[in-house]
């Protein structure tokens, strides 16, 4: 049965269903129980934003509150995965990855390769990404491109509750390390989600709107900005946009992107990450190389500026790509085509 639930509830439900289905699924993280051993633990907080609330009451000591040491518990999760468990580790904010990066990129990402395909590392690292939460430069970054750089990691960043649940269940069942990025400003966004377990395969983008004039590619929160822009473009200028939600960044669904650009001839990529060596540059470069003949104008990129995330709320609001910026970028692809 299907009902409307939030992104946050969808994540909680996916974890609950997989912990119920598979006893090898365990969780580690800072405050995911909410103060182990404290009175009232059944009703404990459940993570900094309450995503894991209630899971300790159901699954007990299969949830482990860890010391504030990402180096230790991310490493422990990866080691447990190599030894046959399916750990889901919560790296509270992706910004904290620096102190455990060796464990992720030099260990987890390499095991399958270094052991001749014999080692499996079915670990999921859930982590909050993105700006707009008034949490300043060290708790707000969109660091997805750091991980797509690395072969051996799967990188996921859903834009809605339905995808979040299906992709997280897929991530837990996957035999490779998965970096699962949750945009904290999407946590309260609701949509129709089945109560049952279901999976969404990695490497399949979602075409969230169909149009013939321009292709807008995005992922995570900015998918919604792209959709707002598409609505404005259709109403004001009768420009119909194809909007593609990548959903999974590694592996990435090049076929869907190319198919769309071959239809529209125009590409705008919207990425909340900083502009250099980002998902935006990756998609723009790939399309330029593989569909150059189809392009009627230079690909446009709408990204955050090359600065840290500002603490000033008014500056932070300008930092994340806006729908207006997407509309303007689409305008550039059309204007150039007209001029040519």
């Amino acid at each position: 049965m299907t009902r409307k639930i939030s992104f946050k509830t969808a994540i909680n439900e996916a974890l609950d269903l997989e912990m119920t289905r598979d006893p090898s699924v365990i969780m580690l993280g800072e405050d995911i129980v909410g103060g182990c051993g404290a009175p009232g633990e059944a009703d404990a907080w459940g993570g900094v934003l309450g995503v894991t609330k209630g899971l300790y009451a159901k699954h007990g000591n299969r949830l482990l509150d860890t010391p504030l040491s990402e180096s230790a518990y991310i490493g422990a999760a990866i080691g447990a995965a190599a030894c046959g468990m399916r750990p889901v580790a919560e790296l509270m904010f992706i910004d904290f990855v620096g102190v455990c990066f060796d464990q992720i990129f030099n260990q987890a990402a390499k095991f399958r390769y270094m052991f001749g395909g014999k080692a499996r590392t079915p670990v999921v690292i859930r982590t909050m990404v993105g700006a707009g939460f008034r949490a300043a430069a060290q708790h707000s970054q969109m660091l997805t491109p750091l991980f797509t750089q690395l072969p051996g990691l799967k990188v996921i960043c859903p834009s809605n509750a339905y995808d979040a649940k299906g992709l997280l269940i897929q991530a837990i069942r996957d035999d490779d390390p998965v970096i699962f990025c949750e945009h904290k400003n999407l946590y309260s966004a609701e949509c129709d989600v089945p109560a049952e377990s279901y999976t969404i395969p990695f490497g399949e983008a979602n075409v969230v709107r169909e149009g013939k004039d321009v292709t807008i590619v995005s992922y995570g929160l900015t998918v919604h900005r792209a959709l707002d822009a598409a609505t404005t473009l259709a109403q004001k200028d009768r420009i119909e946009a194809d909007v593609i939600d990548l959903r999974t960044l590694s592996p990435i669904d090049w076929d869907t992107v190319l198919e769309s650009v071959e239809k529209t001839g125009r590409l705008v990529v919207v990425d909340e990450a900083n502009p250099r060596c980002s998902i935006a540059t990756d998609v723009a470069a790939y399309v330029a190389q593989h569909a150059f003949g189809a392009l009627k104008a230079a690909p446009q990129m709408v990204t955050a500026p090359h600065t840290p995330v500002p603490f000033s709320p008014s500056l932070e609001d300008l930092y994340i790509p806006t729908a207006d910026a997407v509309v303007a970028a689409v305008g550039k692809t059309i204007a150039r085509a007209k001029a040519a």
């Binding site: 089945p194 049952e196 377990s197 279901y198 969404i200």
Partner: peptide, 16 residues
């Protein structure tokens, strides 16, 4: 259309 295909796909992806 896209929605029709998506709806069937969503059904098909449910466990069981």
């Amino acid at each position: 259309n896209r929605q029709l295909v998506d709806d069937v796909l969503k059904y098909k992806r449910i466990d069981g």
